[in-house]
Design a protein around this nucleic acid. Structure first.
Lengths: 363, 363
DNA sequence: GAGGGTCACTGAACCGGTATAGCTTCGTAC
DNA sequence: GTACGAAGCTATACCGGTTCAGTGACCCTC
């Protein structure tokens, strides 16, 4: 293994100053075409690659972006959202020569430390802010740190985009309409998907519909809950709080929630789950108890993971396209870092994919 | 947002030279206890954090390790192995102040480029080598690049550890026993798990057992196949090549393979799947065709993901503990980077977790 | 009380890039 | 024929750490 070529080596070999090599490589004006070609040729011959740390040091740029995931390892592995999202992010970063610095922290305490470390150590130029929480403390913190960020969804209204057509969403409102999002957001409005799922069940005749949601602290959970309840009210039904169960998104809690719901004196005839793993676990519990799906119980998932299509019965789910979400978020973050600003992006809203886990309520 | 404090600020504030500050912070001898305390105090007051790029530049160390995943985004999101593995890696890195640089590349062409870029740009100090392939070209490449690496499993014999007790493994042998692994390996012998799965099915009376495996090019696929076939032979059965189906690890191909197997004139009575998503998809196909599991068909998975416990019927699977694997791999890689060498690690071998997707063959 | 050794500390070089002021050289305008 | 401007290039400072040779001060020893 021979020593790596530095910019000085290239300069010497090309018979110019290293400043000029820098100019040529970053194609800036002030270099004659012939010299530029010669320099580029020499660089190629020497297999020269600029040192990222040296470049970072002089430009105060790290050429990397960060993703901090504050969820239990268990949950991450079960929920296909993040892997897909990351894949989308990578797809963009790769073409731009940036890298992704990933941090998985179990609990929230460490989370703040991680952001501080990333920011202070100049490890990353910007970060993605996922799983937004109510009055998310990370937003002022990142502002104070001066670390650019892109939020997944609007902090004010969860992932609400420009407003789901006709969704209403009277539950969440704009809490503190004054506090605008200081960061660009990339949103995929999941309200229409939730609404469609509930309407679909209503159309099938269901009246006792349960909702198994994610952690209350996460904005999208409360937003989806609001959409869920608003849709019921639109149909003239009063939502029953006892039919809303909060979980941590794991299959284990999805199963437990299903069991609890089915053991009630007046069990629901349909359950809307907050993600696919929980829905699949719910499917298992139903079978276990001798219920048929969708005969005795209809079930819907969320995110439309690959497996949804292949379980039995195939799972009606809400498609959110995390891959595209990751791509859009990455593009927005890179633009923000480069230009100092970037426009909000609204992706195609989530929509319902009807399969065979939902059916008419038993007469 | 005020400017970040540099080592020079600390030095000035403490009234010493910056060299001494560096010594104090990296607690090296040659600093009096009082001075050290004073410096550390000042550093804390100023909320000083060393710049990673500056440090990287002078030490030629990036304080980051890399993981390159060369699988389709689709597959990664379906297969819980990598998320868990990454979570394990993170758990260790976090305590050591290192970060993980992740790269997801769809196809193998880009893979080489990514390694070269990571190495040449001094982006990472070392990498994890996953999904080892037969005569893996990445090994000589990394050697040539001088980039430290840790392999998941032995390149010679797949993930074989010190040899599963009594497993025999006459199929794989040591191909080219001369080519030792230049890198330390962290292995989790999955042969005992495979053997146990097949034995379990044989004990239940199954004779026509199919095997749905991962890509042939990946070492663990061929190793598991060998273990599978050896176990059949031990029982006096001749393996039927038609009952071995190669897939890309996606649920889609798992479903397709199951369909193909069940449409044969002499369908298998049990199927051993290479991962859980495929097994779950297989479960779905069986149900779809009106078969009961395990009455008409027994099914086993691999990796024992969280969902395995919650599908119906609950999935008999082989537990491999990717989380612990990640932790061990990270520790080994850090040691390798720090000391220049590290010992191979053999984790507890995979073992079978029997649930309800396997049962006696129908009389 | 001079020589030797240790300890605490300083100052400057260095890592490999980028940024910029300044120096040639040449062409053109008046 | 001199002045001026621009193009092309060089030299050097700088980013923020680490490393190491060197400098005093102090103690010990004979």
């Amino acid at each position: 293994m021979k020593r790596k070529a530095t910019i000085t080596d290239v300069a010497k070999a090309a018979g110019v100053s290293k400043g000029l090599v820098s100019f040529a490589l970053n194609d800036r004006p002030g270099v004659s075409p012939e010299t530029r070609d010669r320099i580029l040729g020499v660089a190629r011959d020497l297999d020269y690659r600029p040192s990222v740390s040296a470049r970072s040091l002089s430009t105060s740029t790290s050429y990397a972006v960060g993703l901090v995931i504050a969820r239990d390892p268990e949950i991450i592995s079960a929920d296909p959202f993040f892997p897909s999202f990351i894949a989308g992010v990578e797809r963009v970063l790769l073409t731009e020569g940036r890298t992704l610095v990933l941090s998985v922290v179990g609990d929230d305490d460490h989370e703040a430390t991680v952001y501080r470390t990333l920011a202070a150590g100049q490890r990353v130029d910007g970060v993605f802010l996922t799983d937004l929480r109510r009055d998310d403390p990370r937003i002022p913190m990142l502002q104070e740190l001066g670390l650019p960020a892109v939020t997944l969804g609007h902090p004010g209204t969860g992932q609400m985009g420009t407003g789901g057509p006709g969704a209403g969403d009277p539950g969440t409102g704009q809490p503190g309409a004054g506090e605008a999002n200081p960061f660009p957001s990339v949103s995929l409005d999941d309200t229409p998907g939730t609404v469609a799922a509930v309407r679909h069940l209503l159309d099938l005749g269901h009246r006792r519909i349960a909702h198994v949601i994610g952690p209350h602290a996460m904005l999208h959970a409360s937003r989806r809950r609001a959409a869920f309840e608003a849709t019921l009210r639109d149909a003239g039904l009063e939502p029953d709080p006892a039919l809303v169960v909060e979980t941590d998104f794991t299959a284990a809690q999805g199963a437990a929630a299903t069991t609890a719901l089915l053991e009630r004196a007046d069990p629901p005839t349909a359950i809307v789950f907050g993600n696919d793993p929980m829905a699949i676990a719910g499917l298992g519990v139903a079978h276990e108890r001798g219920l048929t799906v969708p005969g005795d119980l209809s079930i819907t998932g969320f995110d439309d993971s690959e497996l949804a299509r292949y379980v039995y019965p195939s799972l009606t789910s809400v498609r959110t396209d995390p891959l595209r979400w990751g791509e859009a978020a990455a593009r927005t973050l890179l633009r923000l870092v480069a230009d100092g600003h970037a426009a909000d992006v609204d992706l195609d809203p989530a929509h319902l994919v009807v399969r065979t886990s939902t059916g008419p309520v038993r007469a």
